[in-house]
Amino acid sequence: MTCILEFDDVSYLYPGRETFALRGFTLALPRGERIALLGRNGSGRTTVFLRCNGLCRPQAGVVRFVGNVIQHDRKSPRWLRQQVGIVFQNPDDQLFSTSVGQDISFGPLNLDLDAAAARRRVQEAAEMCEVSDLLDRPTHALSGGEKARVALAGVLAMKPDVLVADELLSNLDPWVRLSVLGIFHRLHRQGKTLILATHDLEVVQSWASFVVVMNAGQAVFAGAPDDLLGNEMMMAQTGLATVWGARSGVGAPELL
């Protein structure tokens, strides 16, 4: 198994906080897989994502991308951000431009592509995310699902090897979810590594080929989805048994 991202004893404490977002976090993520990252809110998943993209500098430990230690000099983040694209949970945090086409072109132009190449990238990404007809629309006039797909297109236009999506599916209707999962499927067939933060165990079961469970800033499980769902002790320890049981009606709390 080739690893694309490796975290070695990484710790991170946000300024003004008392508990570590990541505490001795160690994990190796396999290349070309569909990875689901599970964990309660506040378990450190977003911090891991920001770390993947070099957006926050760890106070301890190292992170490697395809075996190379990620540095924090002036050039390294640029190289890393070309390789690892991140889609944020709320598309409104990501869309800055007044028009869809211009927003998608932001990443390619930052890679120093000329206008013609950037325009091609915009077209390709828009077609993949099914937003070609929205290119001239203002970003504030889009629906939630359209915004999510435009935000995804903005990242895919940079052609990253790894796509990281922070709970992208959580606020989408089932139709848009299917559409986004379809895009993920096509990206996976192209050999991309996909990392998706989710609370949805059905997505884990049906979509993921590798799953990581986080708790209090640490990875407590990393392996195949079936190994997790079949591991009663792990499911109970992480509290996932309650969620999974509620879905199937087994062991559901009385409240449900």
Binding site: L55, Q94, F106
Partner: peptide, 24 residues
């Protein structure tokens, strides 16, 4: 808070002191 998140999102796409976009 939104401005901070926007800054992170821009940085993640290679922002370098200028919002470079294709002209219409």
């Amino acid at each position: 808070q939104r401005s901070q998140r926007l800054q992170k999102a821009l940085d993640s796409r290679g922002y370098d002191q200028e919002l470079r976009v294709l002209p219409s």
